[in-house]
Amino acid sequence: MEYDAATMSPPPVKGRTFGRRRRFGDRIFSNLTLIFALVIVAILLGLVIVLNIEAAPSISKFGISFLGSSSWDVPKESFGALPAIYGTLLTSAIGVLIAVPISLGAAIFLVEMAPSWLRGPCSFLIEMLAAIPSVIIGLWGIYVLAPFMTPIERWLGGHLGFIPIFHGQVFGFSFLTAGVILTLMIIPIITAVSRDAIKAVPDHQREAMLALGATRWETIRRAVLPYCRSGLIGATILGLGRALGETMAVTMVIGNAYKLTPSLFSTGTTISSKIANEFGEASSGLFIASLVELALVLFGVTLLINVVARLLVWRLTAVKEAS
């Protein structure tokens, strides 16, 4: 292993035994750290390989139609992922739609308006929301949020029932409740990443806009937000990635019915809650393989989303470092 100048290794002393011995110890240690670092890469590769092997029976049996079929019949061994994919996308979309305005507002408040003594505590409290374990949010969701959502859903159904998404019977356990739960869970990450993006906007952008006579809101709207747009999009996508993979809280409030319906008040399922509910009891090979293929779909989507989000957030910080 060659050390480059940046890491400041002493030049090797050639032909002297103590020098060689010192290099020897360093080499062992650096190779040891390398091995542990490679463990991380190996786990990631192992995940991809193992999921693919485990899902192989289902992939070869159903092919691409797995993604488009909505049957889930265990005795007949006919499996399709569509309702689970639909539920995952729908609940995540609801979560992101509600969470983005709140998080963006909170981030603007934290950077542009809050007095400095208030910034730290406020950020800390919002981030604390992310520390509450998912299963506890789910417990709260069953006994507090779901009963609270029932009258809201009934009101929406009464006044806007002519729109298909607000049509249907109300249980409290629904796509909408799951979406609201996801909102609560992704507000912290979207707020934190947007806050950092807004903070990275150089002050001269604001000063130039204010000097033109703009109000503070106009400065934020026309100078600050456009400047850090890619960071804000990255924050949203990171939130989306979190929402797609969320399991316990959603499983506890979505009602777990495998169906495809436009109604937000209907019980439903997501990829992760389908797996959580059935993987432990799955016995036949094809059943297990189908559940693993669901996991593979989830893994692929979150992988893609995280890579895109990282690239967007990185680009912004790179711009900041260059300026």
Binding site: I43, A295, L303
Partner: peptide, 15 residues
């Protein structure tokens, strides 16, 4: 390690 941090925990369970 960033990608691994983003893998849904239920997928880790299956692994």
């Amino acid at each position: 390690s960033d990608i691994l941090a983003g893998v849904p925990s239920i997928v880790v369970g299956i692994f």
